[in-house]
Nucleic acid binder design. Structure first.
Lengths: 123, 123
DNA sequence: CTTGACCCTGACATTAGCGTTAGGGTTTAG
DNA sequence: CTAAACCCTAACGCTAATGTCAGGGTCAAG
């Protein structure tokens, strides 16, 4: 697939796809005419990247987390440093989860106050 | 308290404090000499703001979530719109929580692979 | 062979969230 | 009175993640 299709399927701009690719986040081969060629799997990968960006990670951080985005279990060098890095990320993530759960709680309370009627009516 | 003290206690720069204040996130009165005067409670508020920024919210979004940051239960106008807004935030938050939990899971697996020894040794 | 839809590489523009510098009061210690 | 430590308002600078041209190939359809 070419950039356009990937972009559309993933719901992001072509520019973004190219940006992720040059950041090393998306595998692509070049065809004779210079066009990038991706395989269909990158669509999900792009969505994963978007999610992480939305949660406040930077591109560089996502690059460092890259091996966790799929199942590729290659033996990275310098295990110790890598593990330390991941542990740090874990700490941050746990903190973020707490922040979000906390906020969710408050918002729910807030909604309850603003809308006392209807206990659990969705639409 | 003045900016400097708030900043130090909250662990952020004076510049950031002023920025949050002009964004309408921090209540402050002006003294005769033009100095901002905050009350001690804003320190926690600043920390809450930082947490939300770290989780990917923008200043504007945090402004809209502002009433949830503390216990002030004032009857906001146009309840319906407000509730809708909050429901949207909730959706986003739930998505973010999922993203984080998912990533956490993957990182933990990753760590397990890289470091098969030591099951639960902290230091 | 021309048109339209895509793709490519620069490269400049933009927004958010501050950092930093410039120029200028204020207040506390000595 | 003076130096040190703070505070204030501009206002320009910087990074990240894109948006947005500009200028130029490519390729399938007619």
């Amino acid at each position: 697939m070419r950039v356009g299709e990937i972009a559309e399927r993933a719901g992001v701009s072509v520019r973004a796809i190219r940006y992720y690719e040059q950041a090393g986040l998306l595998p692509a081969v070049r065809r004779a005419n210079g066009y990038r060629e991706f395989d269909a799997g990158v669509v999900d990968r792009v969505r994963a990247i978007r999610d992480l960006l939305d949660v406040g990670f930077t591109i560089d951080e996502i690059v460092s987390l890259s091996p966790c985005l799929q199942g590729a279990a290659n033996d990275a060098p310098c295990r110790t440093q890598t593990v330390t890095l991941y542990r740090d990320k874990l700490d941050r993530i746990n903190q973020q989860v707490n922040t979000l759960l906390d906020l969710r709680q408050r918002i729910q309370e807030r909604i309850a106050v603003l809308e006392p009627a209807r206990a659990a009516v969705p639409a």
